[in-house]
């Protein structure tokens, strides 16, 4: 049935978008820095996992743990070594992280990671047929992980001490400083978490296809599109944005033609920005409302 498969694959697609954009959104929401190196970290995680699994032949779980830790450290290092020096000047933050992201991506291109041999294994092979729609386990796992990450994010920001500290930081840095929260360490954690999330996303999604440099740009684009759509500082908005874009893509690619998928992003961004510039659920105030 067409409708049924559209529903299912729309959900899968939404979950993929969610995974791709969580890291970026988390870092931005908690530290206020738009990490343009997100795509680079994502791709790095993919190649690192490939190296650990295929070249070194490590067991899957160990490789996953190492990858996540390395990218988390990379995220923290980006903050401690670079961003901290330009902190507060939003424009320089953007330029600096952008430069890091591009250098990672283009370095891989130069090193020759452009052939078709790079791919990650699925965690569990096999597929499941529900009614008339066939779905492989990896895609089901993606939905589950996306859901778990959303829950984790909520619990982190609402239940744990560090999460509350980070949230306080994002809302008012000076007040947070005055009650004894070290804003630099809080931001470092948020970068590390963003890196780890990017790695988890890469490990979940990349097995669906081959690893390719342009995925790095695409992930960053998707993260930007989704966050702009949902509102820069709202997790609910992010999830809503993912669901809307995810389904919109599946619908256009089944009903019109697959290559119109890209146009959906652009149209969505432009429409939302024209109608409600702060995003669907954005709390980010418009210029006029900032006093």
């Amino acid at each position: 049935m067409l409708l049924e498969s559209m529903l299912v694959f729309g959900l899968v697609n939404s979950a993929i978008l969610m995974l791709m954009s969580f890291g970026f959104s988390l870092t931005f929401g908690l530290s206020g820095v738009a990490n343009f190196a997100h795509g680079g970290i994502y791709l790095l995680a993919g190649y690192l996992a490939f190296f650990l699994l295929r070249t070194l032949g490590l067991p899957y779980l160990l490789a996953v743990i190492i990858t996540v830790i390395v990218t988390a450290l990379l995220g923290a290092a980006i903050y401690r070594l670079v961003v901290i020096r330009v902190r507060g000047i939003a424009l320089n933050e953007v330029i600096a992280t952008f430069a890091i992201g591009i250098s990672i991506l283009e370095l891989f291109r130069w090193l020759g990671f452009i052939t078709y041999e790079f791919s990650l294994p699925c965690i569990v092979d096999g597929r499941l047929t529900l009614f008339q729609t066939t779905l492989d386990y990896q895609r089901i796992l993606i939905i589950v992980v996306a859901f778990l990450m959303a829950v984790f994010l909520w619990a982190l920001t609402h239940k744990t001490r560090i999460g509350l500290a980070l949230l306080g930081m994002a809302q008012n840095e000076y007040t947070a400083l005055s009650v004894g929260i070290d804003s630099d360490w809080a931001a470092t954690y948020s970068f590390a978490l963003g890196g780890a999330f990017a790695a988890i996303a890469a490990l979940m999604i990349l097995p669906l296809g081959i690893i390719n440099i342009n995925i790095g740009y695409e992930v960053l684009l998707i993260a930007l599109a989704v966050t702009v759509l949902g509102g820069l500082e709202s997790t609910k908005g992010l999830i809503l944005g993912c669901i809307i874009l995810g389904y919109a893509q599946v619908i256009t690619s089944t009903l019109i033609a697959p290559h119109w998928k890209e146009a959906v992003y652009l149209a969505a961004i432009l429409i939302v920005l024209a109608v409600k510039p702060s995003g669907l659920l954005g709390k980010f105030k418009e210029l006029e409302e900032r006093v």
Partner: peptide, 28 residues
């Protein structure tokens, strides 16, 4: 439309536009 907002929105949109346009021209 983006000019109504301050901050990083302009950077976001100028980064996204050429890449999207390239994809659209390629695809269509």
């Amino acid at each position: 439309p983006v000019l109504r907002l301050r901050g990083i929105y302009f950077a976001l949109i100028t980064f996204a536009l050429p890449l999207f346009l390239m994809r659209i021209i390629e695809a269509t």
